[in-house]
Design a protein around this nucleic acid. Sequence first.
DNA 1: TCCTTTTAGTTAGCTGAGCTAATGATCTAT
DNA 2: ATAGATCATTAGCTCAGCTAACTAAAAGGA
Lengths: 148, 148
Amino acid sequence: MSTANPPNSEAEFPWQAAESLHATAIHLLRRLRHADASSALNAPRLSALSVIVFSGPLTLGHLAQAEQVRPPTMTRIVHALEAQGLVIKSTDAADRRTIRLSATLKGKRLLLHARNRRLQTLATHIAALAPAEQATLRRALPILRKLS
Amino acid sequence: MSTANPPNSEAEFPWQAAESLHATAIHLLRRLRHADASSALNAPRLSALSVIVFSGPLTLGHLAQAEQVRPPTMTRIVHALEAQGLVIKSTDAADRRTIRLSATLKGKRLLLHARNRRLQTLATHIAALAPAEQATLRRALPILRKLS
DNA sequence: TCCTTTTAGTTAGCTGAGCTAATGATCTAT
DNA sequence: ATAGATCATTAGCTCAGCTAACTAAAAGGA
Protein backbone atom coordinates (compact mmCIF):
# COMPACT_ATOMS: atom_id res chain seq x y z
CA MET A 1 0.00 0.00 0.00
CA SER A 2 1.48 3.31 -1.01
CA THR A 3 -1.67 5.30 -1.56
CA ALA A 4 -0.21 8.16 0.40
CA ASN A 5 -3.04 8.98 2.73
CA PRO A 6 -4.30 6.27 5.07
CA PRO A 7 -5.45 8.26 8.09
CA ASN A 8 -5.83 5.12 10.13
CA SER A 9 -2.40 3.64 9.49
CA GLU A 10 -0.49 6.59 10.85
CA ALA A 11 2.57 4.43 11.09
CA GLU A 12 3.11 4.50 7.34
CA PHE A 13 6.17 6.40 6.31
CA PRO A 14 4.87 9.07 3.93
CA TRP A 15 2.37 10.17 6.50
CA GLN A 16 4.86 10.25 9.35
CA ALA A 17 7.34 12.10 7.17
CA ALA A 18 4.71 14.67 6.19
CA GLU A 19 3.91 15.33 9.83
CA SER A 20 7.55 15.66 10.72
CA LEU A 21 8.36 17.97 7.83
CA HIS A 22 5.33 20.10 8.60
CA ALA A 23 6.28 20.64 12.21
CA THR A 24 9.91 21.18 11.33
CA ALA A 25 9.11 23.86 8.78
CA ILE A 26 6.90 25.72 11.23
CA HIS A 27 9.46 25.75 13.99
CA LEU A 28 12.34 26.53 11.69
CA LEU A 29 10.65 29.62 10.32
CA ARG A 30 9.56 30.78 13.73
CA ARG A 31 13.14 30.61 14.89
CA LEU A 32 14.48 32.40 11.84
CA ARG A 33 11.95 35.16 12.29
CA HIS A 34 13.64 36.22 15.50
CA ALA A 35 16.78 37.07 13.55
CA ASP A 36 14.75 39.47 11.45
CA ALA A 37 14.04 41.69 14.43
CA SER A 38 17.42 43.34 14.05
CA SER A 39 16.91 43.83 10.36
CA ALA A 40 14.95 46.38 8.38
CA LEU A 41 13.42 43.49 6.43
CA ASN A 42 11.02 40.85 7.64
CA ALA A 43 10.48 37.49 5.98
CA PRO A 44 8.10 38.37 3.13
CA ARG A 45 10.04 41.49 2.15
CA LEU A 46 13.32 39.65 2.33
CA SER A 47 11.98 36.87 0.13
CA ALA A 48 10.48 39.27 -2.40
CA LEU A 49 13.61 41.39 -2.58
CA SER A 50 15.64 38.24 -3.07
CA VAL A 51 13.61 37.32 -6.13
CA ILE A 52 13.94 40.84 -7.52
CA VAL A 53 17.70 40.87 -6.99
CA PHE A 54 18.43 37.44 -8.38
CA SER A 55 15.73 37.08 -11.03
CA GLY A 56 16.37 40.44 -12.60
CA PRO A 57 13.67 42.97 -13.44
CA LEU A 58 10.22 41.43 -13.45
CA THR A 59 6.61 42.50 -13.22
CA LEU A 60 4.54 42.60 -10.05
CA GLY A 61 2.33 39.82 -11.29
CA HIS A 62 5.24 37.52 -11.95
CA LEU A 63 6.71 38.33 -8.57
CA ALA A 64 3.40 37.58 -6.87
CA GLN A 65 3.26 34.28 -8.70
CA ALA A 66 6.82 33.41 -7.75
CA GLU A 67 6.02 34.15 -4.12
CA GLN A 68 2.71 32.29 -4.30
CA VAL A 69 0.84 35.34 -3.16
CA ARG A 70 -2.04 37.42 -4.56
CA PRO A 71 -1.28 40.68 -6.40
CA PRO A 72 -2.70 43.01 -3.72
CA THR A 73 -0.41 41.43 -1.16
CA MET A 74 2.59 41.94 -3.39
CA THR A 75 1.57 45.51 -4.15
CA ARG A 76 1.90 46.35 -0.48
CA ILE A 77 5.19 44.51 -0.01
CA VAL A 78 6.67 46.26 -3.04
CA HIS A 79 5.36 49.60 -1.86
CA ALA A 80 7.20 49.14 1.42
CA LEU A 81 10.40 48.11 -0.34
CA GLU A 82 10.09 51.14 -2.59
CA ALA A 83 9.57 53.46 0.37
CA GLN A 84 12.75 52.07 1.86
CA GLY A 85 14.61 52.88 -1.34
CA LEU A 86 15.43 49.24 -2.03
CA VAL A 87 13.42 48.77 -5.21
CA ILE A 88 12.47 50.99 -8.11
CA LYS A 89 9.46 50.72 -10.38
CA SER A 90 9.79 51.64 -14.03
CA THR A 91 7.05 51.55 -16.61
CA ASP A 92 7.46 49.18 -19.51
CA ALA A 93 7.35 50.98 -22.83
CA ALA A 94 5.82 48.04 -24.64
CA ASP A 95 2.98 47.47 -22.18
CA ARG A 96 2.25 50.42 -19.97
CA ARG A 97 -0.06 48.43 -17.70
CA THR A 98 2.86 46.48 -16.27
CA ILE A 99 5.70 47.71 -14.09
CA ARG A 100 9.31 46.55 -14.10
CA LEU A 101 10.67 45.94 -10.64
CA SER A 102 14.39 46.14 -10.09
CA ALA A 103 16.59 46.43 -7.04
CA THR A 104 18.65 49.49 -6.22
CA LEU A 105 22.27 49.19 -5.16
CA LYS A 106 21.13 49.85 -1.61
CA GLY A 107 18.60 47.06 -2.00
CA LYS A 108 21.19 44.59 -3.18
CA ARG A 109 23.56 45.43 -0.35
CA LEU A 110 20.84 45.26 2.28
CA LEU A 111 19.57 41.96 0.96
CA LEU A 112 22.93 40.31 1.28
CA HIS A 113 23.44 41.59 4.82
CA ALA A 114 19.95 40.61 5.96
CA ARG A 115 20.19 37.18 4.41
CA ASN A 116 23.50 36.59 6.07
CA ARG A 117 22.13 37.55 9.43
CA ARG A 118 19.04 35.44 8.99
CA LEU A 119 20.87 32.36 7.82
CA GLN A 120 23.82 32.62 10.13
CA THR A 121 22.28 30.71 13.01
CA LEU A 122 21.03 27.96 10.75
CA ALA A 123 24.36 27.66 8.96
CA THR A 124 26.14 27.47 12.29
CA HIS A 125 23.95 24.62 13.42
CA ILE A 126 24.51 22.81 10.14
CA ALA A 127 28.25 23.28 10.41
CA ALA A 128 28.11 21.72 13.87
CA LEU A 129 26.61 18.51 12.52
CA ALA A 130 28.70 15.38 12.19
CA PRO A 131 30.13 14.82 8.70
CA ALA A 132 27.85 11.85 8.14
CA GLU A 133 24.83 13.96 9.05
CA GLN A 134 25.95 16.69 6.70
CA ALA A 135 26.26 14.12 3.93
CA THR A 136 22.73 12.90 4.58
CA LEU A 137 21.46 16.45 4.58
CA ARG A 138 23.24 17.15 1.31
CA ARG A 139 21.50 14.22 -0.35
CA ALA A 140 18.13 15.15 1.16
CA LEU A 141 18.05 18.79 0.04
CA PRO A 142 17.19 18.19 -3.62
CA ILE A 143 14.39 15.89 -2.50
CA LEU A 144 13.01 18.52 -0.14
CA ARG A 145 13.08 21.11 -2.88
CA LYS A 146 11.14 18.74 -5.08
CA LEU A 147 8.48 18.43 -2.39
CA SER A 148 7.94 22.15 -2.00
CA MET B 1 37.31 26.03 7.56
CA SER B 2 34.04 25.12 9.17
CA THR B 3 33.30 28.36 10.97
CA ALA B 4 29.77 28.27 9.67
CA ASN B 5 29.40 31.76 8.30
CA PRO B 6 31.78 32.90 5.58
CA PRO B 7 29.62 35.27 3.58
CA ASN B 8 32.18 35.50 0.83
CA SER B 9 32.63 31.78 0.23
CA GLU B 10 29.01 31.11 -0.57
CA ALA B 11 29.99 27.78 -2.05
CA GLU B 12 30.55 26.28 1.36
CA PHE B 13 28.05 23.62 2.26
CA PRO B 14 26.51 24.81 5.54
CA TRP B 15 25.71 28.14 3.98
CA GLN B 16 24.24 26.67 0.82
CA ALA B 17 22.22 24.21 2.87
CA ALA B 18 20.89 26.98 5.09
CA GLU B 19 19.73 28.95 2.04
CA SER B 20 18.11 25.91 0.54
CA LEU B 21 16.34 24.89 3.73
CA HIS B 22 15.14 28.43 4.28
CA ALA B 23 13.56 28.73 0.86
CA THR B 24 12.14 25.25 1.06
CA ALA B 25 10.46 25.90 4.39
CA ILE B 26 8.90 29.13 3.13
CA HIS B 27 7.47 27.58 0.00
CA LEU B 28 6.34 24.44 1.74
CA LEU B 29 4.31 26.36 4.31
CA ARG B 30 2.84 28.68 1.74
CA ARG B 31 1.61 25.68 -0.19
CA LEU B 32 0.21 23.96 2.86
CA ARG B 33 -1.62 27.10 3.87
CA HIS B 34 -3.85 26.79 0.84
CA ALA B 35 -5.20 23.52 2.16
CA ASP B 36 -6.29 25.32 5.31
CA ALA B 37 -8.80 27.41 3.44
CA SER B 38 -11.31 24.59 3.56
CA SER B 39 -10.70 24.03 7.24
CA ALA B 40 -11.91 25.84 10.30
CA LEU B 41 -8.33 25.91 11.55
CA ASN B 42 -5.41 27.88 10.18
CA ALA B 43 -1.77 27.05 10.76
CA PRO B 44 -1.15 28.54 14.22
CA ARG B 45 -4.40 27.20 15.66
CA LEU B 46 -3.81 23.80 14.15
CA SER B 47 -0.33 23.67 15.58
CA ALA B 48 -1.44 24.82 19.03
CA LEU B 49 -4.36 22.40 19.14
CA SER B 50 -2.03 19.63 18.11
CA VAL B 51 0.20 20.28 21.10
CA ILE B 52 -2.81 20.40 23.42
CA VAL B 53 -4.17 17.14 22.07
CA PHE B 54 -0.94 15.19 22.09
CA SER B 55 0.88 16.73 25.03
CA GLY B 56 -2.02 16.46 27.38
CA PRO B 57 -3.29 19.27 29.58
CA LEU B 58 -0.76 22.06 29.90
CA THR B 59 -0.61 25.69 30.90
CA LEU B 60 -0.79 28.62 28.52
CA GLY B 61 2.77 29.60 29.28
CA HIS B 62 4.09 26.16 28.48
CA LEU B 63 2.08 26.08 25.28
CA ALA B 64 3.43 29.49 24.26
CA GLN B 65 6.93 28.25 24.95
CA ALA B 66 6.35 25.06 22.94
CA GLU B 67 5.09 27.13 20.04
CA GLN B 68 7.90 29.67 20.40
CA VAL B 69 5.44 32.49 20.79
CA ARG B 70 4.78 35.16 23.43
CA PRO B 71 1.99 34.64 25.98
CA PRO B 72 -0.33 37.34 24.62
CA THR B 73 -0.22 35.74 21.20
CA MET B 74 -1.12 32.37 22.66
CA THR B 75 -3.90 33.90 24.74
CA ARG B 76 -5.62 34.97 21.56
CA ILE B 77 -5.10 31.69 19.75
CA VAL B 78 -6.47 29.79 22.72
CA HIS B 79 -9.39 32.17 23.01
CA ALA B 80 -10.33 31.42 19.40
CA LEU B 81 -10.00 27.68 19.94
CA GLU B 82 -12.15 27.99 23.04
CA ALA B 83 -14.81 29.97 21.17
CA GLN B 84 -14.90 27.17 18.62
CA GLY B 85 -15.50 24.66 21.38
CA LEU B 86 -12.27 22.81 20.67
CA VAL B 87 -10.45 23.54 23.90
CA ILE B 88 -11.50 24.01 27.50
CA LYS B 89 -9.75 25.96 30.21
CA SER B 90 -9.86 24.70 33.77
CA THR B 91 -8.27 26.32 36.76
CA ASP B 92 -5.57 24.44 38.54
CA ALA B 93 -6.40 23.87 42.19
CA ALA B 94 -2.77 23.98 43.26
CA ASP B 95 -1.90 27.23 41.48
CA ARG B 96 -4.88 29.36 40.59
CA ARG B 97 -2.85 31.74 38.45
CA THR B 98 -2.35 29.09 35.82
CA ILE B 99 -4.89 27.48 33.54
CA ARG B 100 -5.04 23.90 32.37
CA LEU B 101 -5.70 23.63 28.65
CA SER B 102 -7.21 20.45 27.34
CA ALA B 103 -8.92 19.46 24.11
CA THR B 104 -12.58 18.60 23.86
CA LEU B 105 -13.74 15.54 21.95
CA LYS B 106 -14.80 17.86 19.16
CA GLY B 107 -11.33 19.39 19.24
CA LYS B 108 -9.64 16.04 18.93
CA ARG B 109 -11.84 14.97 16.05
CA LEU B 110 -11.43 18.24 14.21
CA LEU B 111 -7.69 18.20 14.70
CA LEU B 112 -7.33 14.81 13.09
CA HIS B 113 -9.49 15.76 10.13
CA ALA B 114 -7.75 19.09 9.58
CA ARG B 115 -4.32 17.57 9.91
CA ASN B 116 -5.21 14.87 7.43
CA ARG B 117 -6.40 17.41 4.92
CA ARG B 118 -3.38 19.61 5.40
CA LEU B 119 -0.86 16.82 5.17
CA GLN B 120 -2.51 14.82 2.45
CA THR B 121 -0.86 16.60 -0.46
CA LEU B 122 2.54 16.43 1.14
CA ALA B 123 2.16 12.76 2.02
CA THR B 124 1.09 12.01 -1.53
CA HIS B 125 4.18 13.68 -2.92
CA ILE B 126 6.36 11.77 -0.49
CA ALA B 127 4.71 8.51 -1.42
CA ALA B 128 5.47 9.25 -5.06
CA LEU B 129 9.21 9.47 -4.39
CA ALA B 130 11.51 6.68 -5.45
CA PRO B 131 12.33 4.20 -2.66
CA ALA B 132 15.92 5.43 -2.49
CA GLU B 133 14.69 9.01 -2.08
CA GLN B 134 12.32 7.94 0.66
CA ALA B 135 15.18 6.23 2.43
CA THR B 136 17.28 9.38 2.24
CA LEU B 137 14.39 11.43 3.54
CA ARG B 138 13.88 9.01 6.41
CA ARG B 139 17.50 9.42 7.50
CA ALA B 140 17.36 13.21 7.09
CA LEU B 141 14.25 13.84 9.17
CA PRO B 142 15.87 13.45 12.61
CA ILE B 143 18.63 15.80 11.51
CA LEU B 144 16.12 18.40 10.36
CA ARG B 145 14.29 18.16 13.64
CA LYS B 146 17.56 18.76 15.43
CA LEU B 147 18.09 21.94 13.39
CA SER B 148 14.73 23.46 14.21
C1' DT C 1 -12.92 52.98 -36.35
C1' DC C 2 -15.42 52.10 -32.22
C1' DC C 3 -16.84 49.15 -28.77
C1' DT C 4 -16.34 45.06 -25.98
C1' DT C 5 -13.48 42.00 -23.51
C1' DT C 6 -9.43 40.83 -21.21
C1' DT C 7 -5.43 41.78 -18.41
C1' DA C 8 -2.26 44.42 -14.85
C1' DG C 9 -2.16 46.77 -10.97
C1' DT C 10 -4.19 49.41 -7.11
C1' DT C 11 -7.47 50.63 -3.41
C1' DA C 12 -10.61 49.52 0.28
C1' DG C 13 -11.81 46.77 3.90
C1' DC C 14 -11.60 42.71 6.40
C1' DT C 15 -9.30 38.70 9.50
C1' DG C 16 -5.65 37.26 12.12
C1' DA C 17 -0.64 36.62 13.77
C1' DG C 18 2.99 38.66 16.10
C1' DC C 19 5.02 42.01 19.36
C1' DT C 20 5.65 45.28 23.85
C1' DA C 21 3.87 47.60 27.81
C1' DA C 22 0.90 47.78 31.47
C1' DT C 23 -2.67 45.41 34.83
C1' DG C 24 -4.73 42.13 37.80
C1' DA C 25 -4.46 38.07 40.31
C1' DT C 26 -2.02 34.77 42.80
C1' DC C 27 1.88 32.55 44.84
C1' DT C 28 6.33 32.78 47.54
C1' DA C 29 9.50 34.21 50.64
C1' DT C 30 11.11 37.21 54.02
C1' DA D 1 2.00 40.73 56.68
C1' DT D 2 4.00 42.62 53.17
C1' DA D 3 7.18 42.86 49.12
C1' DG D 4 8.49 40.78 45.17
C1' DA D 5 8.02 37.29 41.57
C1' DT D 6 5.10 34.85 38.29
C1' DC D 7 0.90 33.74 35.15
C1' DA D 8 -2.36 35.32 32.32
C1' DT D 9 -4.93 39.00 30.18
C1' DT D 10 -5.92 43.56 28.02
C1' DA D 11 -4.75 47.41 25.12
C1' DG D 12 -2.67 49.03 21.20
C1' DC D 13 0.37 48.71 17.56
C1' DT D 14 2.56 46.68 12.78
C1' DC D 15 2.14 43.76 9.12
C1' DA D 16 0.65 39.69 6.04
C1' DG D 17 -2.88 37.58 3.71
C1' DC D 18 -7.36 37.52 1.38
C1' DT D 19 -11.68 39.08 -1.75
C1' DA D 20 -14.24 42.52 -4.15
C1' DA D 21 -14.42 46.46 -6.69
C1' DC D 22 -12.08 49.84 -9.41
C1' DT D 23 -8.90 52.21 -13.07
C1' DA D 24 -5.98 52.01 -16.93
C1' DA D 25 -4.26 49.93 -20.81
C1' DA D 26 -4.07 46.38 -24.44
C1' DA D 27 -6.38 43.21 -27.76
C1' DG D 28 -9.69 42.05 -30.91
C1' DG D 29 -13.94 41.88 -33.49
C1' DA D 30 -18.11 44.16 -35.84
